[in-house]
Amino acid sequence: MPLSIRDIASALKLPMTTIERWARQGHIPATVRKNVYFFDERIIEKWAKKHQLPFRPQDKKEMDELQSDSPSLVRAMKIGSFVYGLPGQSMNEILSNACQQVPMPSQEAQQELYHLLIEREQLTSTGIGKGVAIPHPRTPMEQIPSPLITTCFLNDPIDFKAIDDQRVFVLFILVCPKVDMHLQHLSRLAYCIRDNQFVEFLHTKPDESSFLTRVNDFEKQFEKTDPS
């Protein structure tokens, strides 16, 4: 099973930008397919030992959980990571800053995501009301192995041309490799945001663990009401 930049970055405890640069410069053994780098665990383990770098890959259970096919907001949010105090005054600036935080496999992919998000916003705003927006590309992005949601709490609420004209204070950037995954995650996210208490909870800018616990509760409720 080839590992992605994200897996290697987490195993080596280094930023993804460093791993991507090393792969591009040829300092770390990698194969490239469609501009995406893949790594072999055994080769990287040897390489890390030679270069005196600590290598602790995520355990199998955790990896399986992260790469499972069943939809899970918690898993996608863990992969996508959380950003607090995202700076920016306009929609373009916010999306540009946010895309730099989305753990895509390369900088080119981050750029591409930014353009796709802008393209989508030009069609109609993804601000779904109550100060929440779910920016997402129109077409799935096959470069990523599994769905991800990057949660960004903004420094200042901004005008996102939302349907209720409320200024947006939180973004859930949703990126999926397949259309069906996209719809499943979008409906789960919409289910959470329908709840006003959840939106109030979002206003408190909760830390990662309490946020994920709350989302997990919602997902359990969702699965009960919608067993599909």
Partner: peptide, 8 residues
């Protein structure tokens, strides 16, 4: 053409 990295 061969898709080599920077060092190569």
């Amino acid at each position: 053409y061969f898709g080599l990295n920077d060092r190569q």
